[in-house]
Design a protein around this nucleic acid. Structure first.
Lengths: 118, 118
DNA sequence: GGCTTAATTTAGCAACAGCTTAAATAAGCC
DNA sequence: GGCTTATTTAAGCTGTTGCTAAATTAAGCC
């Protein structure tokens, strides 16, 4: 017997809920292109405790958004893009927008430094 | 002077959060194709109180997902699909899946009634 | 076995989301 | 003005979310 997480949500619904959290989007981006160990991830997301990261990893795994591979004492995670469906486009857009904003900020800063040259 | 809702979220982020709630998806679907009054909406979503609907309408409006038009004592709402960006595809998929599931259930029930004919 | 490292689970807490009921606003009508 | 209808705002309650610190599991090594 295998009980559902809660009131049986469709995969897309689960993915939606998981991705609504900025923290989990951050984590998902880290394992987007490469497999990473839990410790590696927790060390990168350094404004929060390891258990917090672990819990979010579990939620992402239960939503089907990441896969887990165990090897010795390590656990490696990686994004499973298939589970995202049409949400992949959404994520990409959010991320490229963030990048765009970072670039804008950098340019603005460079500009003001040049004019004020301090 | 005009303060942001909170910690200035990108429109897509706001839309994401708004749509993560099943209740708001339900409401959004009601005003998807046609303009509807608040009372009309609240009467349709009848498992919850009017103020609850009103609050969700406000959140949807603040996220830019619906527009409000006042006329006399009435307020009419309607979806603004432009604000959804790539999320429109997600919503459509969720809704057609719901429909698909309803159809499946109906078919299954019909089938079992036929075989067990009770 | 005992020690170390990797990661999770548990228990508890503060903040928040979504709801309820009751009170308030606002427009239209007599 | 007073009454009705449409809708929102306010206050409060409850369950959930995201976190922390402490305890636990599990693998590898001596």
């Amino acid at each position: 017997m295998q009980a559902r997480t809660r009131t049986s949500a469709t995969p897309l619904e689960a993915a939606m809920g998981a991705i609504a959290s900025p923290r989990r989007r951050q984590i998902l981006r880290l394992v987007w292109n490469a497999e990473r160990s839990a410790g590696d991830i927790a060390a990168t997301v350094d404004d929060v405790s390891w258990p917090a990261v672990s819990q979010n990893l579990r939620l992402l795994k239960n939503s089907g958004l990441i896969t887990e591979r165990r090897e010795g004492t390590h656990r490696y995670y990686r994004a499973d893009r298939r589970a995202l469906g049409p949400l992949e486009v959404v994520l990409r857009q959010m991320w490229t927008r963030d990048l765009g904003r970072l670039r804008e900020l950098a340019e603005e800063e460079a500009r003001s430094r040049r004019t004020r040259h301090d």
